[in-house]
Simulated assay, not measured.
Amino acid sequence: MAGLIPFGGRRPRIDGTAFVAAGARLIGDVEIGAQASIWYNCVLRGDVNRIRIGARTNVQDGTVIHVDSPKPGKDGGHPTIIGADVLIGHMAMIHGCVLHDRAFVGLGAIVMDGCEIESGGMLAAGAMLTPGRRIPSGQLWAGRPARYLRDLSAEELAGHAAGVAHYVALAQAHREALSGA
């Protein structure tokens, strides 16, 4: 089982249907929803604020998710709130932001403090969304710093839904394979 580490009187809470791969580290105030998947060697560090991961969301291998501390003038800091059916690609950096239901973050992308990706919004692989930026629903942003590239097609949005279903099934297959190991 993954490294579940209590911190500051809080311990990770994981729905019984979620998959957390070996080598992942979940620290402090982290909550994982139903059928979500946290893949190999991810770090979710809810030590100075909270992390919430919604149902059927997948966080792919090597991703780091952290939060922003409360500060003077910013009493709540920035927790990381990730909705349902979100796809987060390998090696992404997610920090103190909100990813709404059905958002997409590409491989190696960076989402910084105070950012928001609306439902159906996408940050391309390798892109960096700088602090306080917002990707509207149905838009693709790319680059460093990220900028609007184009609207997503209906086929791309449908492919996102298929990707979510794929990862739910793949997580179940990994759970079964590991239980027989």
Results as ranks from 00 to 15, higher is better:
M1T: 07
A2R: 02
L4C: 06
L4H: 12
L4V: 06
I5A: 00
R10F: 02
R11M: 11
D15A: 14
T17N: 11
A21S: 13
A22G: 13
G23I: 07
R25V: 05
R25E: 11
L26V: 01
I27C: 04
G28F: 01
D29I: 06
A34K: 12
A34N: 09
Q35R: 15
Q35I: 05
A36T: 01
I38E: 08
I38S: 08
C42K: 01
C42G: 02
V43Q: 03
G46Y: 05
G46Q: 02
D47G: 07
V48Y: 04
V48A: 15
V48P: 01
I51V: 08
I51F: 04
R52S: 12
A55E: 15
R56T: 07
Q60L: 07
T63C: 11
I65D: 01
H66T: 04
V67K: 03
S69D: 11
P70Y: 03
K71M: 09
K71I: 10
K71D: 09
K71L: 14
P72E: 10
K74V: 02
K74P: 00
G76F: 01
G77P: 00
T80G: 03
T80H: 04
A84P: 14
A84T: 14
V86I: 12
V86N: 04
L87M: 09
L87I: 06
M93G: 08
I94C: 09
H95R: 07
C97H: 08
C97W: 14
L99W: 01
H100P: 12
D101T: 08
A103V: 12
A103Y: 00
G106W: 03
G108S: 05
V111K: 12
G114M: 09
E116H: 15
S119M: 08
L123C: 08
L123K: 04
A124W: 14
A125W: 09
A125S: 15
T130V: 15
P131G: 01
G132L: 14
G132Q: 14
R133C: 07
R133M: 02
S137V: 01
S137Y: 05
G138R: 11
Q139C: 11
Q139N: 07
L140G: 03
W141Y: 09
Y148M: 08
Y148I: 01
L149Q: 15
D151F: 11
A154I: 10
E155H: 13
E156W: 04
E156L: 04
A158T: 14
H160Y: 09
V164R: 11
A165F: 11
Y167G: 02
L170D: 13
H174E: 10
R175E: 10
E176V: 11
A177I: 02
A177Y: 06
G180W: 02
